[in-house]
Design a protein around this nucleic acid. Structure first.
Lengths: 247, 247
DNA sequence: CGTGTTATTGACCAACATCAAACTTAGTGG
DNA sequence: CCACTAAGTTTGATGTTGGTCAATAACACG
């Protein structure tokens, strides 16, 4: 008898369901993965550059950022990861981490041994395909960010990111309407968008002034989806979601 | 007996050899792939956003750029692809292209049917792994570019890109020393780096003035590798090459 | 030789960064 | 319940990198 099927791994199944179609057997095989649960405070690293992890971390709850620190201590966040993501799935094929994974909020994570994941992949081609697909989508999101940082204005970039997070959260059924927690500081937003904190602040004020969004505390509410989408030049194709319902 | 083993596909084998270890059987299976050869002039699209390709293109010769065109006609090149690359391998899992692939030089390419690639992947796990690994490295390169555009100065970005291309070309044994053709216009460099043509020009002049590089025509020669590397804050870890000899 | 593309220059400008201070908020312990 | 503190946000003043526009020079190619 294998390990107790963790209800914890349901998030992974749900996430994969947003991008691929899996059979009941596939899902059961995923749920049977052995997992070591762990919780982290805000601002902690799950995995660090240079490490050679023996496990992959599945996010159960909270927000994780993938980042590098360049030359003079400047941080660039390269992607944001939501519950259901396995941001270091990459470590299965690329043993040495070339970036850090850090929590932006308190995080609950499940650590899945490489060996078990490899078995799963070998035994269940559909799951292997879903994982491959997931890392390709991950890459597509990074490319979209690259295009944004390279060619979009600060206002566009911020609007775009808000749209992206909204769509991703809705696809995961973590929000229903267009109201969500954005538990990141403006400094972190800047690190993700290649902007300074001060500028992020000013642009956010603009967006509020224009009634595109409101935010009380860390709750963010998109007031005018269509105009925000327009302001951010946002087109969700690059997310490659299965159900366009997510829009 | 399958189709004639094309010497053309050797480039793919050589490329995969730089990132993964394949058996003789794996290599023979790759070489047996059916391929439709095609040549393109400079500035043509191999695949376009929105398309659903039924084949993947393997670059045999020339330089290919992956790009998007945003809102007001501004182009962002998101990656550069050298001979041996299959830049649209992604289309196997993500049927709708979310970007364009265009030639920056005249290009010879081999088109490989999806069906044949799927059979290859199903039959040879090591090849599947190599492909996965390849797309993960592709993503790692995009992340590095993202970090650069987000946080590095124009000078650093340009120096970094020159270093990257040099290392990649050497890994493929396409150059021996540090002299290579950079058959791209300054406008294209700008599109890749998120800079204007004018600024690219000025920074290149600086690099020449500082004796980091020389360029006659489109032949580029790195004069002072160590200082260029320093100027670009370049660390090749993210390329995940098998032989560090490439340095 | 023309003719079109690419590189170079100069003048000017805008977006965004930096610095530093004040203000808000949320949490903490007495 | 009220300081007190630390983190985050907001503001203003000022600086800089790199963009834009437009013209000229250098090539490359037929």
């Amino acid at each position: 008898m294998g390990p107790t099927p963790s209800p914890e791994l349901n998030g992974l199944v749900r996430k994969l369901a947003t991008i691929a179609q899996l059979s009941g057997d596939d899902e059961r095989a995923i749920l049977a993965l052995p997992a070591r649960l762990k919780t982290f405070d805000e601002d902690n690293d799950l995995v660090r550059e240079g490490q050679r992890p023996m496990e992959c971390c599945l996010i159960l709850e909270g927000l994780v950022g993938r980042y590098k620190v360049l030359g003079r201590g400047q941080r660039q966040i390269m992607s944001l990861h939501l519950p259901g993501d396995i941001p270091d799935l990459v470590s299965l094929e690329l043993p040495v981490m070339d970036h850090n994974l850090g929590t932006l909020t308190p995080v609950r994570a499940a650590f899945l041994p490489h060996a078990a994941l490899r078995e799963l992949i070998a035994a269940r081609p559909a799951v292997a395909g879903a994982f491959w697909r997931d890392s390709l989508i991950d890459a597509a999101i990074v490319r979209e960010w690259l295009a944004g940082i390279g060619r979009r204005t600060a206002r566009q970039r911020i609007a775009h990111l808000l749209c992206e997070l909204c769509v991703r959260l809705r696809a995961l059924r973590l929000i229903v309407d267009r109201i969500f927690e954005l538990p990141v500081t403006q400094a972190e937003l800047g690190d993700a968008l290649g902007l300074s904190t001060v500028h992020v602040n000013r642009v956010l004020q603009d967006l509020r002034r224009d009634n595109l969004i409101v935010s009380q505390g860390r709750t963010l509410k998109i007031l005018d989806w269509d105009r925000l989408r327009l302001a951010g030049d946002f087109d969700p194709t690059y997310l490659h979601l299965r159900r366009t319902a997510a829009l």
